[in-house]
Write a protein that binds this DNA or RNA. Structure first.
Length: 571
DNA sequence: GCCGTTTTCGGCCCGACTGTTTTCAGTCG
Protein backbone atom coordinates (compact mmCIF):
# COMPACT_ATOMS: atom_id res chain seq x y z
CA UNK A 1 0.00 0.00 0.00
CA UNK A 2 1.40 3.33 -1.05
CA UNK A 3 1.07 5.88 1.72
CA UNK A 4 -0.54 9.20 0.95
CA UNK A 5 2.51 11.20 1.97
CA UNK A 6 4.61 9.66 -0.81
CA UNK A 7 2.18 10.62 -3.55
CA UNK A 8 2.68 13.84 -5.49
CA UNK A 9 0.59 16.60 -3.94
CA UNK A 10 -2.21 18.29 -5.84
CA UNK A 11 0.03 21.32 -6.19
CA UNK A 12 2.77 19.28 -7.85
CA UNK A 13 0.31 17.66 -10.26
CA UNK A 14 -1.26 21.00 -11.12
CA UNK A 15 2.16 22.58 -11.70
CA UNK A 16 3.07 19.77 -14.08
CA UNK A 17 -0.13 20.27 -16.06
CA UNK A 18 0.35 24.04 -16.19
CA UNK A 19 3.90 23.57 -17.45
CA UNK A 20 2.64 21.02 -19.95
CA UNK A 21 0.13 23.63 -21.11
CA UNK A 22 2.84 26.29 -21.51
CA UNK A 23 5.14 23.98 -23.45
CA UNK A 24 2.33 22.65 -25.63
CA UNK A 25 1.31 26.17 -26.44
CA UNK A 26 4.87 27.09 -27.46
CA UNK A 27 4.92 24.03 -29.70
CA UNK A 28 1.75 25.22 -31.37
CA UNK A 29 -0.54 22.50 -30.05
CA UNK A 30 -4.25 22.89 -30.54
CA UNK A 31 -5.53 25.60 -28.25
CA UNK A 32 -8.36 23.62 -26.77
CA UNK A 33 -6.02 20.93 -25.57
CA UNK A 34 -3.94 23.59 -23.84
CA UNK A 35 -7.07 24.99 -22.24
CA UNK A 36 -7.98 21.51 -21.09
CA UNK A 37 -4.61 21.10 -19.34
CA UNK A 38 -5.02 24.45 -17.60
CA UNK A 39 -8.56 23.68 -16.52
CA UNK A 40 -7.49 20.35 -15.14
CA UNK A 41 -4.67 22.08 -13.24
CA UNK A 42 -7.09 24.56 -11.68
CA UNK A 43 -9.53 21.80 -10.78
CA UNK A 44 -6.78 19.77 -9.11
CA UNK A 45 -5.59 22.75 -7.10
CA UNK A 46 -9.09 23.32 -5.77
CA UNK A 47 -9.72 19.69 -4.90
CA UNK A 48 -9.24 19.12 -1.17
CA UNK A 49 -8.41 15.41 -1.28
CA UNK A 50 -5.41 13.75 -2.94
CA UNK A 51 -6.04 13.63 -6.68
CA UNK A 52 -3.09 11.26 -7.09
CA UNK A 53 -4.88 8.82 -4.81
CA UNK A 54 -8.09 9.27 -6.80
CA UNK A 55 -6.27 8.65 -10.08
CA UNK A 56 -4.81 5.42 -8.72
CA UNK A 57 -8.28 4.05 -8.00
CA UNK A 58 -9.72 5.53 -11.18
CA UNK A 59 -12.00 8.18 -9.68
CA UNK A 60 -10.04 11.30 -10.69
CA UNK A 61 -11.92 11.41 -14.01
CA UNK A 62 -15.10 12.05 -12.09
CA UNK A 63 -13.75 15.54 -11.42
CA UNK A 64 -15.04 18.16 -13.84
CA UNK A 65 -12.38 18.83 -16.46
CA UNK A 66 -10.45 15.61 -15.94
CA UNK A 67 -10.97 12.73 -18.33
CA UNK A 68 -9.36 9.41 -18.99
CA UNK A 69 -6.30 10.88 -20.72
CA UNK A 70 -5.37 13.30 -17.96
CA UNK A 71 -6.10 10.70 -15.31
CA UNK A 72 -3.59 8.43 -17.04
CA UNK A 73 -1.08 11.27 -17.03
CA UNK A 74 -1.57 11.65 -13.27
CA UNK A 75 -0.94 7.96 -12.77
CA UNK A 76 2.26 8.37 -14.76
CA UNK A 77 3.29 11.22 -12.50
CA UNK A 78 2.68 9.01 -9.46
CA UNK A 79 4.67 6.16 -10.95
CA UNK A 80 7.55 8.00 -12.66
CA UNK A 81 7.56 11.35 -10.88
CA UNK A 82 6.68 13.17 -14.09
CA UNK A 83 4.15 12.86 -16.89
CA UNK A 84 5.72 11.38 -20.03
CA UNK A 85 4.12 14.02 -22.25
CA UNK A 86 5.79 16.65 -20.10
CA UNK A 87 9.19 14.96 -20.35
CA UNK A 88 8.84 14.73 -24.12
CA UNK A 89 7.96 18.38 -24.52
CA UNK A 90 10.70 19.51 -22.16
CA UNK A 91 13.15 17.96 -24.61
CA UNK A 92 11.67 19.93 -27.47
CA UNK A 93 11.45 23.36 -25.87
CA UNK A 94 14.45 25.33 -24.55
CA UNK A 95 14.14 25.72 -20.79
CA UNK A 96 14.34 29.51 -20.67
CA UNK A 97 11.42 30.08 -22.98
CA UNK A 98 8.65 29.54 -20.42
CA UNK A 99 9.81 32.66 -18.58
CA UNK A 100 8.90 34.74 -21.67
CA UNK A 101 5.24 33.91 -21.09
CA UNK A 102 5.32 35.68 -17.70
CA UNK A 103 6.21 38.99 -19.35
CA UNK A 104 3.14 41.16 -19.87
CA UNK A 105 2.22 41.39 -23.52
CA UNK A 106 4.25 38.35 -24.53
CA UNK A 107 2.09 35.35 -25.25
CA UNK A 108 2.80 31.95 -26.77
CA UNK A 109 2.48 33.02 -30.41
CA UNK A 110 4.93 35.89 -30.18
CA UNK A 111 7.34 33.88 -28.02
CA UNK A 112 7.33 31.00 -30.48
CA UNK A 113 8.13 33.35 -33.33
CA UNK A 114 11.00 34.95 -31.44
CA UNK A 115 12.32 31.47 -30.72
CA UNK A 116 11.99 30.05 -34.22
CA UNK A 117 12.84 33.06 -36.30
CA UNK A 118 15.48 34.75 -34.15
CA UNK A 119 16.80 31.76 -32.23
CA UNK A 120 16.38 33.65 -28.95
CA UNK A 121 15.70 31.32 -25.99
CA UNK A 122 16.75 33.20 -22.83
CA UNK A 123 15.59 36.39 -21.14
CA UNK A 124 19.10 37.78 -21.54
CA UNK A 125 19.00 36.98 -25.26
CA UNK A 126 15.61 38.63 -25.47
CA UNK A 127 16.95 41.80 -23.90
CA UNK A 128 19.87 41.88 -26.33
CA UNK A 129 17.58 41.30 -29.30
CA UNK A 130 15.29 44.12 -28.19
CA UNK A 131 18.20 46.50 -27.61
CA UNK A 132 19.68 45.63 -31.02
CA UNK A 133 16.25 46.35 -32.54
CA UNK A 134 16.08 42.88 -34.00
CA UNK A 135 12.60 42.10 -32.67
CA UNK A 136 11.07 44.67 -35.02
CA UNK A 137 12.26 42.60 -37.98
CA UNK A 138 9.40 40.23 -37.20
CA UNK A 139 6.06 41.16 -38.74
CA UNK A 140 3.64 42.39 -36.10
CA UNK A 141 6.38 43.59 -33.75
CA UNK A 142 7.56 47.19 -33.81
CA UNK A 143 9.53 49.71 -31.80
CA UNK A 144 6.79 50.02 -29.19
CA UNK A 145 6.83 46.26 -28.62
CA UNK A 146 10.59 46.34 -28.03
CA UNK A 147 10.17 49.16 -25.52
CA UNK A 148 7.48 47.28 -23.64
CA UNK A 149 9.56 44.12 -23.49
CA UNK A 150 12.60 46.02 -22.22
CA UNK A 151 10.49 47.75 -19.60
CA UNK A 152 9.06 44.42 -18.46
CA UNK A 153 12.55 42.93 -18.28
CA UNK A 154 13.77 45.84 -16.16
CA UNK A 155 10.97 45.23 -13.69
CA UNK A 156 11.71 41.52 -13.72
CA UNK A 157 9.31 38.73 -14.54
CA UNK A 158 6.01 39.34 -12.80
CA UNK A 159 7.34 42.81 -12.01
CA UNK A 160 4.61 45.23 -11.15
CA UNK A 161 2.04 42.50 -10.67
CA UNK A 162 0.53 43.28 -7.28
CA UNK A 163 0.86 40.54 -4.72
CA UNK A 164 -2.22 39.06 -3.15
CA UNK A 165 -3.31 40.71 0.09
CA UNK A 166 -5.34 38.93 2.80
CA UNK A 167 -9.10 39.58 2.77
CA UNK A 168 -8.95 40.92 6.32
CA UNK A 169 -6.81 43.86 5.18
CA UNK A 170 -9.13 44.89 2.37
CA UNK A 171 -12.67 43.98 3.33
CA UNK A 172 -13.22 46.67 6.00
CA UNK A 173 -11.82 49.32 3.67
CA UNK A 174 -13.92 48.28 0.71
CA UNK A 175 -17.11 48.03 2.78
CA UNK A 176 -16.45 51.45 4.20
CA UNK A 177 -15.96 52.84 0.70
CA UNK A 178 -19.22 51.20 -0.41
CA UNK A 179 -21.12 52.70 2.54
CA UNK A 180 -19.69 56.15 1.99
CA UNK A 181 -20.45 56.14 -1.73
CA UNK A 182 -23.98 54.87 -1.09
CA UNK A 183 -24.52 57.97 0.98
CA UNK A 184 -23.51 60.24 -1.90
CA UNK A 185 -26.46 62.11 -3.48
CA UNK A 186 -25.48 61.04 -7.01
CA UNK A 187 -25.32 57.33 -6.12
CA UNK A 188 -28.13 54.95 -7.03
CA UNK A 189 -26.56 51.56 -6.38
CA UNK A 190 -23.09 50.71 -5.11
CA UNK A 191 -21.60 47.27 -4.51
CA UNK A 192 -18.25 45.66 -4.07
CA UNK A 193 -17.47 43.17 -6.82
CA UNK A 194 -14.62 40.86 -7.80
CA UNK A 195 -12.91 38.41 -5.49
CA UNK A 196 -13.61 40.53 -2.41
CA UNK A 197 -17.35 40.13 -3.04
CA UNK A 198 -16.79 36.39 -3.28
CA UNK A 199 -14.89 36.77 0.03
CA UNK A 200 -11.89 34.95 -1.34
CA UNK A 201 -9.17 34.75 1.28
CA UNK A 202 -6.92 37.15 -0.62
CA UNK A 203 -7.18 39.69 -3.42
CA UNK A 204 -5.09 41.65 -5.89
CA UNK A 205 -7.33 44.67 -6.15
CA UNK A 206 -10.65 45.82 -4.75
CA UNK A 207 -13.46 46.28 -7.24
CA UNK A 208 -16.45 48.57 -6.81
CA UNK A 209 -19.34 48.94 -9.20
CA UNK A 210 -22.07 51.56 -9.12
CA UNK A 211 -24.84 53.33 -10.91
CA UNK A 212 -25.40 57.05 -10.51
CA UNK A 213 -27.54 59.96 -11.60
CA UNK A 214 -24.29 61.84 -12.19
CA UNK A 215 -21.39 59.39 -12.81
CA UNK A 216 -18.78 62.13 -12.88
CA UNK A 217 -19.83 63.36 -9.45
CA UNK A 218 -19.59 59.85 -8.01
CA UNK A 219 -16.15 59.06 -9.40
CA UNK A 220 -15.01 62.43 -8.09
CA UNK A 221 -16.34 61.61 -4.64
CA UNK A 222 -14.56 58.27 -4.89
CA UNK A 223 -11.10 59.71 -5.57
CA UNK A 224 -11.67 62.14 -2.70
CA UNK A 225 -12.42 59.44 -0.14
CA UNK A 226 -10.24 59.87 2.96
CA UNK A 227 -8.65 56.48 2.40
CA UNK A 228 -7.33 57.47 -1.03
CA UNK A 229 -3.65 58.42 -1.07
CA UNK A 230 -2.99 58.39 -4.81
CA UNK A 231 -5.23 58.66 -7.87
CA UNK A 232 -3.97 56.48 -10.71
CA UNK A 233 -6.76 57.19 -13.19
CA UNK A 234 -9.87 59.33 -13.03
CA UNK A 235 -12.56 59.63 -15.68
CA UNK A 236 -16.31 60.06 -15.52
CA UNK A 237 -17.17 56.38 -15.53
CA UNK A 238 -14.01 54.79 -14.16
CA UNK A 239 -11.40 55.56 -11.56
CA UNK A 240 -8.48 53.79 -9.95
CA UNK A 241 -6.99 54.83 -6.64
CA UNK A 242 -4.40 53.57 -4.19
CA UNK A 243 -5.01 53.78 -0.45
CA UNK A 244 -2.48 54.83 2.15
CA UNK A 245 -1.73 51.18 2.95
CA UNK A 246 -1.14 50.35 -0.70
CA UNK A 247 -4.47 48.79 -1.66
CA UNK A 248 -5.67 49.28 -5.21
CA UNK A 249 -9.32 50.28 -5.67
CA UNK A 250 -11.17 50.23 -8.99
CA UNK A 251 -14.54 51.92 -9.37
CA UNK A 252 -16.74 51.54 -12.45
CA UNK A 253 -19.95 53.50 -12.89
CA UNK A 254 -22.32 51.73 -15.28
CA UNK A 255 -25.78 52.29 -16.77
CA UNK A 256 -28.57 51.40 -14.30
CA UNK A 257 -30.42 49.20 -16.80
CA UNK A 258 -27.53 46.72 -17.00
CA UNK A 259 -26.17 47.00 -13.47
CA UNK A 260 -27.23 43.41 -12.79
CA UNK A 261 -25.42 42.05 -15.85
CA UNK A 262 -22.28 44.02 -15.06
CA UNK A 263 -22.25 43.13 -11.37
CA UNK A 264 -22.57 39.48 -12.34
CA UNK A 265 -19.71 39.80 -14.80
CA UNK A 266 -17.36 41.71 -12.52
CA UNK A 267 -17.99 39.51 -9.52
CA UNK A 268 -16.58 36.49 -11.36
CA UNK A 269 -14.87 34.22 -10.91
CA UNK A 270 -13.50 33.91 -14.38
CA UNK A 271 -14.00 30.15 -14.19
CA UNK A 272 -17.60 30.61 -13.04
CA UNK A 273 -18.35 33.04 -15.86
CA UNK A 274 -16.75 30.89 -18.53
CA UNK A 275 -18.71 27.83 -17.41
CA UNK A 276 -21.91 29.86 -17.16
CA UNK A 277 -21.43 31.20 -20.67
CA UNK A 278 -20.60 27.81 -22.13
CA UNK A 279 -23.71 26.40 -20.57
CA UNK A 280 -25.71 29.35 -21.91
CA UNK A 281 -24.41 28.75 -25.45
CA UNK A 282 -25.73 25.19 -25.27
CA UNK A 283 -29.13 26.61 -24.41
CA UNK A 284 -29.19 29.17 -27.17
CA UNK A 285 -28.04 32.21 -25.17
CA UNK A 286 -25.01 34.40 -25.45
CA UNK A 287 -23.96 36.04 -22.19
CA UNK A 288 -21.74 39.07 -21.82
CA UNK A 289 -21.38 41.89 -19.32
CA UNK A 290 -23.87 43.90 -21.39
CA UNK A 291 -26.73 41.47 -21.50
CA UNK A 292 -28.05 38.02 -22.26
CA UNK A 293 -28.84 37.58 -25.95
CA UNK A 294 -31.29 34.97 -27.16
CA UNK A 295 -29.41 33.84 -30.25
CA UNK A 296 -32.48 32.87 -32.31
CA UNK A 297 -34.31 36.14 -31.91
CA UNK A 298 -31.43 38.50 -31.22
CA UNK A 299 -33.37 39.77 -28.23
CA UNK A 300 -31.13 41.20 -25.50
CA UNK A 301 -32.05 40.91 -21.84
CA UNK A 302 -30.60 43.53 -19.53
CA UNK A 303 -31.49 44.03 -15.89
CA UNK A 304 -30.65 46.14 -12.92
CA UNK A 305 -30.87 43.11 -10.64
CA UNK A 306 -28.25 40.43 -10.62
CA UNK A 307 -30.73 37.81 -9.37
CA UNK A 308 -32.63 38.20 -12.62
CA UNK A 309 -29.56 37.33 -14.70
CA UNK A 310 -29.46 33.93 -13.02
CA UNK A 311 -33.23 33.53 -13.17
CA UNK A 312 -33.29 34.38 -16.88
CA UNK A 313 -30.75 31.63 -17.53
CA UNK A 314 -32.70 29.11 -15.48
CA UNK A 315 -30.62 29.12 -12.31
CA UNK A 316 -31.38 29.58 -8.66
CA UNK A 317 -29.54 32.70 -7.40
CA UNK A 318 -25.94 31.73 -6.70
CA UNK A 319 -24.38 33.50 -3.69
CA UNK A 320 -21.10 35.16 -4.71
CA UNK A 321 -19.10 32.97 -2.32
CA UNK A 322 -20.00 29.89 -4.37
CA UNK A 323 -19.02 31.26 -7.77
CA UNK A 324 -15.87 29.27 -8.41
CA UNK A 325 -17.18 26.67 -10.87
CA UNK A 326 -16.98 23.90 -8.33
CA UNK A 327 -20.45 22.49 -8.85
CA UNK A 328 -22.57 25.56 -8.10
CA UNK A 329 -23.98 25.85 -11.63
CA UNK A 330 -25.26 22.27 -11.71
CA UNK A 331 -26.70 22.63 -8.21
CA UNK A 332 -28.38 25.94 -9.05
CA UNK A 333 -29.80 24.47 -12.23
CA UNK A 334 -31.50 21.80 -10.12
CA UNK A 335 -32.49 24.20 -7.37
CA UNK A 336 -30.28 22.33 -4.91
CA UNK A 337 -27.95 25.03 -3.64
CA UNK A 338 -27.38 24.86 0.11
CA UNK A 339 -28.83 27.52 2.34
CA UNK A 340 -25.56 29.00 3.57
CA UNK A 341 -24.80 29.81 7.20
CA UNK A 342 -25.06 33.47 8.19
CA UNK A 343 -23.35 35.56 10.81
CA UNK A 344 -26.57 35.88 12.78
CA UNK A 345 -26.84 32.09 13.12
CA UNK A 346 -23.96 31.89 15.59
CA UNK A 347 -25.05 31.36 19.18
CA UNK A 348 -21.64 31.43 20.79
CA UNK A 349 -17.90 31.36 20.31
CA UNK A 350 -15.75 28.40 21.28
CA UNK A 351 -12.25 29.85 21.14
CA UNK A 352 -11.20 33.03 22.91
CA UNK A 353 -8.40 34.30 25.13
CA UNK A 354 -8.19 36.67 28.08
CA UNK A 355 -5.48 38.32 30.12
CA UNK A 356 -4.90 34.90 31.64
CA UNK A 357 -2.87 34.32 28.46
CA UNK A 358 -0.01 36.79 28.31
CA UNK A 359 -1.05 37.86 24.81
CA UNK A 360 -4.69 38.43 25.80
CA UNK A 361 -5.80 42.07 25.95
CA UNK A 362 -9.09 41.85 27.88
CA UNK A 363 -10.20 40.29 31.15
CA UNK A 364 -12.52 37.30 31.37
CA UNK A 365 -15.35 39.60 32.33
CA UNK A 366 -14.72 42.06 29.52
CA UNK A 367 -14.67 39.24 27.00
CA UNK A 368 -17.84 37.70 28.42
CA UNK A 369 -19.73 40.99 28.43
CA UNK A 370 -18.69 41.71 24.86
CA UNK A 371 -19.83 38.25 23.77
CA UNK A 372 -23.15 38.73 25.51
CA UNK A 373 -23.53 42.15 23.87
CA UNK A 374 -23.13 40.43 20.49
CA UNK A 375 -26.16 38.33 21.34
CA UNK A 376 -24.20 35.19 22.14
CA UNK A 377 -25.41 32.80 24.80
CA UNK A 378 -22.02 31.41 25.65
CA UNK A 379 -18.31 31.99 25.24
CA UNK A 380 -15.60 29.40 25.73
CA UNK A 381 -12.54 30.92 27.36
CA UNK A 382 -9.68 28.85 26.04
CA UNK A 383 -6.51 30.41 27.33
CA UNK A 384 -3.19 28.91 26.39
CA UNK A 385 -2.30 25.91 28.53
CA UNK A 386 1.17 27.27 29.12
CA UNK A 387 -0.20 30.01 31.39
CA UNK A 388 -2.51 27.77 33.36
CA UNK A 389 -0.03 25.65 35.24
CA UNK A 390 0.84 25.52 38.93
CA UNK A 391 -2.71 25.84 40.18
CA UNK A 392 -3.71 28.68 37.91
CA UNK A 393 -6.19 26.47 36.04
CA UNK A 394 -8.10 25.95 39.31
CA UNK A 395 -7.95 29.67 40.07
CA UNK A 396 -9.34 30.42 36.65
CA UNK A 397 -12.12 27.86 37.18
CA UNK A 398 -13.13 29.71 40.33
CA UNK A 399 -13.06 33.07 38.55
CA UNK A 400 -15.27 31.70 35.79
CA UNK A 401 -17.69 30.14 38.27
CA UNK A 402 -18.01 33.47 40.01
CA UNK A 403 -18.58 35.22 36.70
CA UNK A 404 -21.24 32.72 35.70
CA UNK A 405 -23.01 33.39 38.96
CA UNK A 406 -23.39 37.00 37.94
CA UNK A 407 -23.96 36.68 34.19
CA UNK A 408 -26.42 33.77 34.01
CA UNK A 409 -28.14 32.78 31.84
CA UNK A 410 -25.13 33.78 29.77
CA UNK A 411 -22.57 31.06 30.16
CA UNK A 412 -18.78 31.30 30.26
CA UNK A 413 -17.39 27.89 29.44
CA UNK A 414 -14.12 26.90 31.01
CA UNK A 415 -11.88 25.69 28.24
CA UNK A 416 -8.26 25.54 27.28
CA UNK A 417 -6.12 25.65 24.19
CA UNK A 418 -3.62 22.88 24.74
CA UNK A 419 -0.44 22.63 22.75
CA UNK A 420 0.29 19.59 20.62
CA UNK A 421 3.98 19.01 21.28
CA UNK A 422 6.57 17.92 18.76
CA UNK A 423 6.25 14.34 20.04
CA UNK A 424 2.47 14.39 19.55
CA UNK A 425 1.59 14.52 23.24
CA UNK A 426 -0.38 17.36 24.82
CA UNK A 427 1.20 19.74 27.30
CA UNK A 428 -1.65 19.27 29.77
CA UNK A 429 -2.43 16.15 31.77
CA UNK A 430 -5.57 14.15 31.10
CA UNK A 431 -6.57 14.71 34.70
CA UNK A 432 -6.52 18.48 34.20
CA UNK A 433 -8.43 18.27 30.94
CA UNK A 434 -11.13 16.09 32.39
CA UNK A 435 -12.81 18.84 34.38
CA UNK A 436 -13.00 21.31 31.51
CA UNK A 437 -16.01 22.16 29.37
CA UNK A 438 -14.17 22.55 26.09
CA UNK A 439 -10.69 21.43 25.06
CA UNK A 440 -8.95 22.69 21.92
CA UNK A 441 -5.69 21.10 20.86
CA UNK A 442 -3.48 23.03 18.45
CA UNK A 443 -0.09 22.77 16.83
CA UNK A 444 1.96 25.90 17.50
CA UNK A 445 5.48 24.71 16.75
CA UNK A 446 7.44 22.26 14.61
CA UNK A 447 4.89 22.46 11.80
CA UNK A 448 7.01 20.33 9.52
CA UNK A 449 7.44 17.53 12.06
CA UNK A 450 4.89 14.77 11.37
CA UNK A 451 1.94 17.16 11.65
CA UNK A 452 -0.67 14.61 10.60
CA UNK A 453 0.47 11.96 13.09
CA UNK A 454 0.65 14.47 15.93
CA UNK A 455 -2.81 15.82 15.18
CA UNK A 456 -4.22 12.32 14.93
CA UNK A 457 -2.79 11.51 18.35
CA UNK A 458 -4.58 14.54 19.77
CA UNK A 459 -7.81 13.58 18.00
CA UNK A 460 -7.68 10.18 19.70
CA UNK A 461 -7.44 11.79 23.14
CA UNK A 462 -10.96 11.45 24.57
CA UNK A 463 -10.73 14.84 26.32
CA UNK A 464 -9.99 16.78 23.15
CA UNK A 465 -13.14 18.33 21.67
CA UNK A 466 -11.67 20.38 18.86
CA UNK A 467 -8.52 20.76 16.80
CA UNK A 468 -7.56 24.43 16.51
CA UNK A 469 -6.29 26.09 13.30
CA UNK A 470 -5.51 22.81 11.61
CA UNK A 471 -2.52 23.67 9.43
CA UNK A 472 -1.09 26.60 11.40
CA UNK A 473 -0.71 28.71 8.31
CA UNK A 474 -0.28 32.49 8.44
CA UNK A 475 -1.51 34.14 5.28
CA UNK A 476 1.32 35.63 3.22
CA UNK A 477 3.79 34.73 5.97
CA UNK A 478 3.89 30.99 6.46
CA UNK A 479 2.58 28.04 4.52
CA UNK A 480 0.47 25.69 6.53
CA UNK A 481 1.71 22.29 7.61
CA UNK A 482 1.17 19.55 5.06
CA UNK A 483 -1.67 17.87 6.92
CA UNK A 484 -3.55 14.90 5.47
CA UNK A 485 -6.94 16.49 6.00
CA UNK A 486 -8.91 13.46 4.79
CA UNK A 487 -7.36 11.21 7.41
CA UNK A 488 -7.89 13.78 10.15
CA UNK A 489 -11.53 14.23 9.17
CA UNK A 490 -12.05 10.48 9.17
CA UNK A 491 -10.70 10.10 12.71
CA UNK A 492 -12.55 13.19 13.92
CA UNK A 493 -15.79 11.59 12.78
CA UNK A 494 -14.95 8.39 14.64
CA UNK A 495 -14.01 10.18 17.87
CA UNK A 496 -16.61 12.99 17.74
CA UNK A 497 -13.90 15.61 17.57
CA UNK A 498 -14.66 18.76 15.60
CA UNK A 499 -12.49 21.01 13.50
CA UNK A 500 -12.63 24.78 13.76
CA UNK A 501 -12.52 27.49 11.19
CA UNK A 502 -10.20 29.89 12.97
CA UNK A 503 -11.43 33.32 11.89
CA UNK A 504 -8.30 35.34 12.58
CA UNK A 505 -7.83 37.25 9.32
CA UNK A 506 -4.29 35.98 8.83
CA UNK A 507 -5.26 32.38 9.58
CA UNK A 508 -8.61 31.41 8.04
CA UNK A 509 -7.72 27.85 8.89
CA UNK A 510 -9.51 25.51 7.97
CA UNK A 511 -9.34 27.12 4.58
CA UNK A 512 -12.35 26.94 2.27
CA UNK A 513 -11.60 23.69 0.43
CA UNK A 514 -10.69 21.90 3.66
CA UNK A 515 -13.86 23.09 5.36
CA UNK A 516 -15.86 21.86 2.40
CA UNK A 517 -14.17 18.48 2.64
CA UNK A 518 -15.10 18.29 6.32
CA UNK A 519 -18.68 19.31 5.60
CA UNK A 520 -19.09 16.77 2.83
CA UNK A 521 -17.79 14.08 5.15
CA UNK A 522 -20.50 15.00 7.65
CA UNK A 523 -18.15 16.45 10.25
CA UNK A 524 -19.47 19.39 12.30
CA UNK A 525 -17.25 22.46 12.11
CA UNK A 526 -17.18 25.39 14.50
CA UNK A 527 -16.53 28.99 13.54
CA UNK A 528 -14.27 30.54 16.17
CA UNK A 529 -12.85 34.01 16.58
CA UNK A 530 -9.69 32.98 18.46
CA UNK A 531 -10.08 36.50 19.84
CA UNK A 532 -7.35 37.92 22.01
CA UNK A 533 -9.27 41.15 22.51
CA UNK A 534 -12.87 42.36 22.67
CA UNK A 535 -12.82 43.77 19.15
CA UNK A 536 -11.45 40.55 17.71
CA UNK A 537 -14.71 38.76 18.47
CA UNK A 538 -15.84 40.40 15.22
CA UNK A 539 -13.41 38.23 13.28
CA UNK A 540 -16.07 35.55 12.97
CA UNK A 541 -17.32 37.52 9.97
CA UNK A 542 -14.32 36.12 8.10
CA UNK A 543 -14.89 32.62 9.42
CA UNK A 544 -18.50 32.76 8.26
CA UNK A 545 -17.23 33.81 4.82
CA UNK A 546 -14.94 30.77 4.72
CA UNK A 547 -17.82 28.53 5.80
CA UNK A 548 -20.03 29.93 3.08
CA UNK A 549 -17.32 29.40 0.49
CA UNK A 550 -17.21 25.83 1.80
CA UNK A 551 -20.94 25.42 1.06
CA UNK A 552 -21.73 24.97 4.76
CA UNK A 553 -25.22 25.40 6.17
CA UNK A 554 -26.28 26.45 9.64
CA UNK A 555 -26.84 22.79 10.53
CA UNK A 556 -23.23 21.90 9.75
CA UNK A 557 -21.84 24.58 12.07
CA UNK A 558 -21.60 23.41 15.66
CA UNK A 559 -21.87 26.79 17.35
CA UNK A 560 -25.16 27.69 15.70
CA UNK A 561 -26.49 25.49 18.48
CA UNK A 562 -27.05 26.25 22.14
CA UNK A 563 -24.55 24.82 24.58
CA UNK A 564 -27.16 22.37 25.83
CA UNK A 565 -27.65 21.08 22.30
CA UNK A 566 -23.91 20.75 21.81
CA UNK A 567 -23.50 18.80 25.04
CA UNK A 568 -26.30 16.48 23.99
CA UNK A 569 -24.64 15.91 20.60
CA UNK A 570 -21.40 14.97 22.26
CA UNK A 571 -23.22 12.33 24.26
C1' DG B 1 -8.41 17.05 -24.17
C1' DC B 2 -13.22 17.38 -22.39
C1' DC B 3 -18.04 16.90 -22.77
C1' DG B 4 -23.43 16.16 -23.74
C1' DT B 5 -31.73 18.60 -21.65
C1' DT B 6 -29.72 19.24 -29.69
C1' DT B 7 -24.48 15.85 -29.85
C1' DT B 8 -20.00 9.87 -28.41
C1' DC B 9 -18.68 14.06 -32.93
C1' DG B 10 -18.01 18.58 -33.30
C1' DG B 11 -18.20 21.95 -30.84
C1' DC B 12 -15.40 24.73 -27.11
C1' DC B 13 -17.25 32.64 -23.52
C1' DC B 14 -17.00 37.29 -24.64
C1' DG B 15 -15.35 41.74 -25.25
C1' DA B 16 -11.60 45.37 -24.60
C1' DC B 17 -7.26 46.84 -25.60
C1' DT B 18 -2.77 47.13 -28.02
C1' DG B 19 0.20 47.52 -31.69
C1' DT B 20 0.45 46.92 -35.94
C1' DT B 21 -2.00 47.51 -39.12
C1' DT B 22 -5.92 49.36 -43.66
C1' DT B 23 -9.14 44.77 -41.21
C1' DC B 24 -6.65 41.98 -37.73
C1' DA B 25 -3.94 38.84 -34.55
C1' DG B 26 -2.48 38.38 -30.11
C1' DT B 27 -3.08 39.13 -25.37
C1' DC B 28 -5.66 39.84 -21.27
C1' DG B 29 -9.20 39.46 -17.67
Amino acid sequence: MVTATRLPSNGVLADQLDLLADLSELLGDQGFRVTAYRRAATRIRETPGSVAEMALVGTAKELQGIGKTIEDKIVEAVRDGEMSALRKRREQVPEGLVAFLRLPGLGPKTTARIWHELGVTTLEGLREAAEAERLRTLPGLGARSEEKILEALRKGADGGAPRRTPLGVGLPAVLEAVETLRGHPAAIRVSEAGSVRRRRESFRDLDLIATATDPGALTKAFVQLPLVAEVVAHGDSKATAISGNGLRFDLRVVPPESFGNLLQHFTGSKEHNVALREDAVRRGFSVSEYGVTTVDTGEVFTTGDEEEVYAHLGYQFIPPELRENTGELEAARQGKLPSLVELGDLKGDLHAHSTWSSDGKATLEEMALAARARGYRYLAMTDHSHYLRDGRLELQAAAIAELNGRLAPFRVLHGIEANIRADGGLDVSDAALEGLDWVIASVHTSFDKNPTERILEAVENPHVDCIGHLTGRKLSRREGADVDVERVVERCLATRTVLEIDSQPDRLDLRDVHARLAGEAGLPVCIDSDAHSVGALDYVEYGVAVARRAWLTKEQILNTRTWAQIEKMRG
